[in-house]
Design a protein around this nucleic acid. Structure first.
Length: 591
RNA sequence: UGGGGCGUCGUCAAGCGGUAAGACAUCAGGUUUUGGUCCUGACAUUCGGGGGUUCGAAUCCUCCCGCCCCAGCCA
């Protein structure tokens, strides 16, 4: 299809450029292996989608592999609820892992690697309190001071570490630390903690362990064990890369010293035989995703859920994958978005409008069209016979005939949108007003002959006459109308609840808040609008939960996956509005 | 001079010494039985700033400025 001239591919991100280079030099023998490594301590959000699309996308582009690996090294924060949701969300996004591992799968191996480090004189047990360790770590500008336990003998350290594992010590009594450099300019390298004691049940390993490895120790080694080649993470881990390398390098060095293996030779030989130790993984960092108008930090999302500011992780206003799913976003639109934003190293905030564009582009192609009146006012066609009914065959998609048709009944009394009528309309208003003629979509031309109001001046009923010669919405005489309105037959319409969602926050950047305020002070009190007097065409009564469609002229909607019941209560979520140039014109007029 | 990163259109983002891609947004038109879609056009003489190297610099050197990350027994 593409007949572009050859040459260096344009627009490739820096990571793929690195991989190209690696493939040229053959460091990994052409292998490309990535992993998506979430901690199961919360639900995935759109920021994770960026990482997922990158990691799985790279594997796909290079015929490589991508693992799903749960970084489950902190049992007190993690739960199976989260691992289940993460697996579901990754699948829903359209990706499948070559293997699903857990860091906890490696607890035994990691433990022996820690022992190896001790035997190499590269790790020691420190009995300083957490406070003492912090105090002795120094500051960003001053070096740290060595622990008084830093020079314990190998035998002493080994005995202590084994006692840690055996459960002989209480939480916090001591830790295993890497012996690196207390004066390192990079604070991460000042004898980082490798293992801590937690007498806590783990969601997978139960009570088997009371010591748990730290992220920095676990991550690179897990990558190496799995044969990962390119370990992609976000920018805030740049400072951790030297430690990542230190752990992998130290292990490789240790594996070259069989005299240290002792009775655990089997496990060390197994490790040495893994591809990850001949072709060691490298970490690369890219900028995490920020989107205008929302928050993407786990802490804040948890707060929104726990404090009840939203109905749950899958509240359609949430930037979580399950929130977007329930809102009606398609996986295709999210993937398209992730491709368009690119991968780079500069901190950036993408406009929400881009995501919405991707969504609309996808839904325009695939959403069937229906008629629904959300804020109804009655329209009576005075010259239309009382007991007559027309049945209009209407296409489900304006451009794509393959969507087929459905039949929509029409009768004397109809519901139309309240905002489609004005008693005293301005010149650019193309809709209904006294004496004006408009088209009822796919039905007839009607002319407004009168209206009624209540004492407050609110329109309660509109009268009109129709032209029988315009059946189907065409006029044989070539007469044109400026406006086309959607409608629902009052006699045949079905009642529905519509939930319109707006921005969760009132500010573009809820992360940058005024002094003394929190992001919660910017919650939009009007982010959810529930309309429970809507009338929709009969065909929608049997719609399956989760189905995307468009209410013509109103927006993209989907049947709610929790509350919508075919044949029963109908609940529709607004996924997105249509682009609205009329609203723009109005706004201009106001100013 | 604590260390590590980053600065190209309003927002993302290509570009890697040969004379500023693309997308979103915005604006102006056209088509239209959705004020939708679609189509057309406009939109960085300039790449954080100053010097320098070069026939030629967003790309190389240098100084300066701004922003982000790091002192968890979190990830």
């Amino acid at each position: 299809m593409s007949n572009k001239p050859e040459g260096p591919e344009k627009g490739k991100d820096f990571i793929r450029t690195i991989i190209d280079k690696d493939n040229e030099t053959g460091v990994y023998g052409g292998r490309v292996h990535t992993r998506f490594p979430p901690e199961p301590n919360g639900y995935l959000h759109i920021g994770h989608a960026k990482s997922i699309c990158l990691n799985f996308g790279v594997a796909r582009d290079y015929q490589g592999k991508c693992n799903l690996r749960f970084d489950d090294t902190n049992p007190v924060k993690e739960d199976v609820e989260y691992v289940d949701s993460i697996r579901e969300d990754v699948h829903w996004l359209g990706f499948d892992w070559d293997a699903n591992f857990y860091a906890s799968d490696y607890f035994e191996k990691l433990y022996f690697i820690a022992e190896l480090f001790i035997k190499m004189g590269k790790a020691y047990v420190d009995h300083q309190s957490a406070d003492e360790i912090r105090a002795n770590r120094g500051t960003l500008k001053e070096p740290g001071v060595p622990s008084p336990h830093r020079d314990r003998t190998v035998d002493e350290n080994l005995a202590l570490f084994r006692a840690m594992r055996a459960g002989d010590m209480k939480d916090g009594e001591c830790v295993l630390r890497a012996k690196i450099d207390m004066t390192a300019a990079n604070v991460v390298m000042r004898d980082p903690t490798l293992y801590r004691i937690k007498h806590a049940d783990h969601h997978r390993t139960g009570a088997a362990w009371c010591i748990y490895p730290m992220y920095d120790f676990t991550h690179g080694l897990s990558d190496a064990i799995e044969g990962v080649t390119h370990s992609l993470c976000t920018l805030e881990f740049e400072n951790n890369r030297p430690l990542y390398d230190w752990c992998v390098d130290t292990l490789m060095e240790g594996l070259r010293q069989p005299e240290l293996f002792g009775e655990n030779a089997a496990i060390y030989n197994e490790l040495a035989a893994l591809p990850g130790f001949n072709q060691r993984p490298r970490q690369y960092e890219f900028a995490r995703l920020n989107i205008t108008g929302t928050v993407l930090s786990k802490r804040k999302l948890i707060q929104l859920v726990k404090e009840g500011h939203v109905s749950g992780w899958d509240d359609p206003r949430m930037p979580t994958i399950c929130g977007f799913r329930r809102r009606g976003y398609t996986p295709e639109s999210i993937r398209d978005f992730c491709e368009r934003i690119g991968i780079a190293k500069s901190d950036s905030t993408v406009e929400f409008a881009l995501l919405e564009h991707c969504l609309r582009q996808d839904l325009n192609d695939r959403a069937p069209r229906y008629l629904g009146v959300l804020d109804p006012v009655k329209l009576v066609i005075e010259n239309y016979p009382e007991d007559q009914t027309d049945e209009f065959d209407m296409p489900l998609h304006p451009e794509e005939e393959s969507f087929g048709h459905r039949v929509v009944p029409f009768s004397k009394e109809l519901w139309i949108e309240r905002e489609d009528f004005m008693i005293d309309p301005p010149k650019k208003f193309f809709r209904l007003g006294p004496g004006r003629e408009v088209r009822l979509r796919f039905a007839y031309y009607v002319t407004c002959t009168g209206y009624e109001t209540d004492p407050d001046g609110k329109v309660t009923l509109i009268r009109a006459s129709y032209d029988p010669e315009t059946k189907g919405g065409w006029s044989k005489d070539g007469r044109k109308v400026k406006g086309t309105l959607h409608w629902v037959s009052a006699k045949h319409g079905v009642k529905a609840e519509v939930r319109n969602y707006g921005n969760l926050f009132t500010t573009e950047n809820p992360n940058a808040v005024e002094e003394g305020k929190t992001f919660l002070d910017y919650l939009n009190p009007d982010s959810l609008e529930v309309l429970d007097t809507c009338w929709v065409e009969p065909a929608l009564a049997e719609m399956k939960p989760g189905t995307n469609f468009q209410f013509e002229r109103m927006g993209y909607y989907c049947a709610d996956s929790r509350d919508h019941k075919p044949g029963g209560r109908l609940v529709f979520n607004r996924t997105a509005t249509l682009r609205d140039t009329w609203a723009k014109i109005q706004k201009k007029g106001d100013n």
